[in-house]
């Protein structure tokens, strides 16, 4: 791996000497890009190959569209977990989107520059906290709190969703602040010169102008939430049921994989890979929707 195919050091030297450096830099960049591209492709192919036994033996309807997960007796339906992933993600976004965008408005528009920068730094710091730390924190504080308030076990969809709020907030806030900052100052001035109050300008001009950027921020936050594993696994209860009740324990695709992969073999293991495939499909779906939103923005 240390040498590119057919590139001898002498040839490299000659290229440098003759000022042909551009070509080599280009080649190097091409290699880097190829490695990343091939890596992604290989992961995709590998996951697909590993999930094939489950797809062929269990069948797509019983694998993807059933909530019956009893691996010991040969039932591998993942719908409960797909639902768990979507449910906790959407629930988290219902809180995190307004909170994140609100924080972005505060940072970029309302707060004095120094305060805004301070808040921004703190939120960025939040993004750097490992998820296991946040999970542990939630396990020791959030879960008992939910337990004492609701009388439930404390573990479940609510705890998971709240953890995801924390996990996705930095993404949403920083990207939203970025897209608000990109709104031309002339528009803000024009609105103010029309006799709009600060809030009217923010609500009627600034946010609509930054609309696509704000949506993309939330979608990327969703991506973060969908993939989150450790912190969620610690608080969601890891039950195999499909539930839309906030206080019931459940599972997401990621937590189910990490919960069961230790002992799984054969079709069971393959069914877990099929869940990974499902996760990939969800991510691809998100990426495509971001592309579509960006394209709309370019055309506007």
């Amino acid at each position: 791996m240390s040498e590119g195919p057919g590139i001898s050091p002498a040839a490299t030297m000659r290229a440098m000497v003759t000022g042909d450096r551009d070509r080599w830099v280009k080649l190097l960049m091409f290699c880097c890009a190829s490695v990343s591209f091939l890596g992604v492709l290989l992961i995709f192919l590998f996951i697909f190959r590993e999930s094939l036994p489950a797809i062929t033996k269990v069948g797509i309807p019983k694998l993807f569209l059933s909530t019956d997960w009893r691996p010991a007796s040969g039932h591998y339906g993942m719908l409960a977990f797909t639902f768990g992933t979507l449910f906790t993600t959407v629930a988290a976004m219902i809180i995190a989107a307004p909170l994140g965008i609100g924080a972005a408005v505060f940072i970029d528009q309302v707060a004095p520059e120094k305060v805004g920068r301070g808040v921004r730094r703190v939120i960025e710091l939040l993004a750097g906290i490992p998820s296991v730390v946040i999970g542990w924190f939630a396990l020791t504080l959030l879960v008992p709190f939910i337990r004492s308030v609701t009388g439930s076990s404390g573990f479940g969809m609510l705890a998971a969703s709240l953890v995801l709020v924390v996990m996705s907030l930095p993404t949403i806030t920083t990207l939203s602040a970025e897209s608000l900052r990109a709104v031309p100052v002339e528009l803000k001035e024009a609105s103010a010169a029309m006799g709009a109050t600060r809030w009217q300008s923010i609500y009627k001009i600034l946010m609509p102008s930054a609309r696509e950027g704000l949506i993309i921020a939330v979608v990327l936050g969703m991506g973060r939430a969908i993939g989150e594993t450790m912190a969620v696994q610690m608080v969601i209860g890891n039950a195999s049921q499909a539930t839309a009740s906030l206080l019931q324990p459940g599972s997401t695709l990621t937590t189910r994989i990490v919960q069961d992969m230790g002992e799984a073999s054969g079709v069971f293991r393959s069914a877990l890979f099929a869940q990974a495939l499902m996760l990939l499909l969800l991510s691809v779906f998100l990426i495509i929707s971001i592309r579509l939103i960006s394209r709309e923005r370019k055309h506007a």
């Binding site: 008992p144 324990p249 919960q259």
Partner: peptide, 24 residues
């Protein structure tokens, strides 16, 4: 096999088990 309840909370250690049962 005997399948456990789908609504059962799964935990991965004796310590967590004690924590949950002890506080719920």
């Amino acid at each position: 096999v005997v399948e456990s309840a789908g609504s059962a909370i799964q935990c991965s250690s004796n310590g967590v088990m004690r924590e949950i049962v002890g506080s719920t």
